[in-house]
């Protein structure tokens, strides 16, 4: 599904955000990316959905090099990837329904298709009774679930979340993570960068730990920190 070979990303002024990262993620996996602030988690995510290009190395998604990919092919790559951010990034002047439908309009979906598909994902995200509300009328957890519904609406094969629970309390964080687990169980590969130690330790999923731009640990049934 995702393969990185010896990937480095250097920013100007000698900042090495990632150096020599090699890793593989299979279809259907549920993966946490952990590490201290500045370790390179967000950079790794930006490389995967090709917001940034690596300085060195190769990245393959579904067998295709996204480094050699032409710029006009990038939108079609992104349609296969759903993205969720810490700050939700919803449109404040649109309802829940419209925010989710927006993602479908952008890729040229028809009205009938939108009418059918949007309620479906909103149900999956547990937002059926919130469809006509505006983001400011929702709690943080609900807003993040809207963002997840939006990421999911175009049926991506991969869902990436960069600190999806960073702005939420623990109970709400669990809500979000459970939602993502359910999505994973329906077949979508899920990749989450997080600082949520308790959740990572409880779920015992695959954990890739980064530190100063390098992979320092990659364990199945791993914990947030080294088992001591």
């Amino acid at each position: 599904m995702i393969q990185l070979y010896n990937v480095s990303k250097f920013y100007p002024k000698g900042i090495k955000a990632l150096s020599g990262v090699t890793l593989q993620i299979e279809k259907g996996e549920f993966v946490f990316i952990v590490g201290p602030s500045g370790a390179g988690k967000s950079t790794l995510i930006k490389l995967i959905f090709r917001e940034e290009l690596p300085t060195k190395g190769q990245i393959y998604i579904k067998g295709r090099s996204i480094v050699r990919m032409k710029p006009r092919e990038v939108p079609y790559l992104r349609r296969q990837i759903g993205i969720v951010f810490q700050d939700f990034r919803l449109l404040p002047d649109r309802t829940v329904f419209e925010n989710v439908a927006f993602a479908m309009q952008v890729v040229g979906a028809g009205r009938a298709e939108i009418k059918r598909r949007v309620p479906e994902v909103l149900r999956l995200a547990g937002l059926t009774d919130r469809t006509q509300m505006y983001p400011r009328q929702l709690s943080g957890g609900e807003q993040q679930r809207v963002a997840i519904a939006r990421a999911l609406v175009n049926k991506p094969v991969l869902l990436i979340a960069d600190e999806p629970t960073g702005n939420l309390d623990l109970d709400t964080s669990w809500e979000i993570i459970n939602c993502l687990q359910e999505i994973n169980q329906r077949g979508t590969t899920v990749l989450i960068a997080t600082h949520a130690r308790e959740i990572v330790d409880t779920l015992r999923q695959r954990v890739i730990a980064l530190d100063r731009g390098k992979v320092v640990r990659d364990e199945y049934r791993g914990a947030y920190a080294h088992a001591t």
């Binding site: 710029p71 939108p75 349609r79 993205i83 990034r89 449109l91 927006f102 952008v106």
Partner: peptide, 16 residues
């Protein structure tokens, strides 16, 4: 700019 960045994240083509 918000709308534009979201459009790009969800895979809008440049021309769209």
């Amino acid at each position: 700019r918000r709308e534009i960045s979201i459009m790009k994240y969800v895979g809008a083509t440049d021309w769209f």
